[in-house]
Amino acid sequence: MTSKSSMHIDPYERNWIIISIVLLVSFAVAISVAGFAFGIQVPSPEQRVDPRTVADSGPWADPGLRELSPGKYEAYILAQTWSFLPREMTVPIGAEVTFYITSKDVQHGFKLQETNLNVQVVPGQVSKLTVTFDRPGDYDYICTEYCGSGHAAMFGTLHVEP
C-alpha cells in the first residue's frame, strides 16, 4: 500500500466483506436451485387482454375450472370489485392446476393460502402459475391488494378432495 491516498481497509473489515460476499453468493445459489431446479417460479408475461371487454367473451366470460386431461386442469379466475369468480372450486387430490387470473377493473391480489401461489392481479395482464395439490383440504384464496371499500371481504375457496 502506498502511503498517500489508499483505502486503508482494516484486516477485520476485509474479512467481514468477504464473509458478506460468501453469504450473498450462497443465498443466490439457494434461490436459483429453488427456482430453476425445484420449479418454484414467479410469473412471466402470459398474454394481454382488454379489461373493458375481458368479462364479455372468451374464457373469463365463463370463469372456472376446465379439465384438460385426467388430473390436469386450467382455472380461469376473474377478479372484480369485490369478489373472485368463481367463488368456489373443487379438484381431486393430485390435481395439477394452471391458474389464469385477470381483473376487469382495478388491481387485486391473489394469494392461495398454504401454497406459494401469490400474485399481483393487474388489469390488462394475465397472472399465470401452476400448482399441484398433494394435500386434501380447503384452501382460501384471498385478495392481497387494496381494491376499494369491500377489499377485506374478497376471497374464495378451493376444495381439494381426498
Partner: peptide, 8 residues
C-alpha cells in the same frame, strides 16, 4: 420449499 412448486 414446504409450500411446493409454482411452475411458471
Amino acid at each position: 420449499l414446504s409450500r411446493g412448486m409454482t411452475v411458471g
